[in-house]
Design a protein around this nucleic acid. Structure first.
Lengths: 130, 130
DNA sequence: GGTTGCGTTGACGTCGGCGGCAAGGTTTAG
DNA sequence: CTAAACCTTGCCGCCGACGTCAACGCAACC
């Protein structure tokens, strides 16, 4: 299959597929006229890439998963390098969740404080009696 | 005070202060020779900006808080526009927390699956008996 | 008057995952 | 023969908060 068909079946664009190739993630063959030619396995590779990108991976993180698929494994996450990336990403997400929780608390407190101040100002404006 | 001193006291760089000014957040006076001159109030403004940036606000979101400080309020978050931004940001953070929780679950499951597969492969390699 | 250390404006670089356009070659259908 | 629908490479644009020059002016000290 050529690049247009692969893009359509993978739900992405030709520009994106060339970008992945430029970064060493997808490896098409070339037909006599220079067109990129992909086999079915590349469709799975592209879907793996898209799936991992969607949950916040960078292209560099994804490379081991693609290599794992190319090595003949059914899924891209069973190889040691992939597992290492998964562990690291899980730790990163946990860290980020902690920090985002802190941010949430600060936002919540700040909002509560602002509203309290506004009510107080409102009471003062209308006078202490109500 | 001039830009170098303000940068030092606010824990940032002169480049950053000029950047804030270019985006309408900080408003220094000018001395006869063209140097920027800041009063003490601007230090509080810059600290407010830095504090909000640190928890994920963009410069556009911060504008109402600065305006609130300039209007003479003790804190930048008591004005209606600031409260509106705080509410919106809190909602955004809640959304993001939800999605990040989903991502965490997917990562966790994928990691568990990968490890299970690896153990299974290991057992097959050494034979079913042990 | 030379050096050092402030300040000024302006403009380009960074990161990442692409979008979009230009200028051309290839293939196919009518 | 021509138009359309593919394909190719290459390069600029984008977002946002700055960093990092360049090239210059001003102030102060020796």
């Amino acid at each position: 299959m050529r690049i247009g068909e692969l893009a359509q079946r993978a739900g992405t664009s030709t520009r994106t597929l060339r970008y992945y190739e430029a970064h060493g993630l997808v490896r098409p063959n070339r037909s006599a006229n220079g067109y990129r030619v992909y086999d079915e396995a590349e469709l799975r590779v592209v879907r793996e890439i898209r799936s991992l990108l969607a949950i916040g991976f960078g292209l560099d993180d994804i490379r081991p998963f693609v290599a794992c698929l190319r090595a003949g494994h059914d899924s891209g996450d069973v190889c040691p390098d992939s597992v290492a990336v998964l562990r690291r990403k899980l730790a990163e997400v946990d860290d980020y969740l902690d920090r985002l929780g802190d941010v949430r608390r600060r936002l919540h407190d700040q909002l509560a404080h602002a509203i309290a101040q506004r009510e107080e100002t409102c009471l003062r404006t209308r006078g202490p009696a109500g």
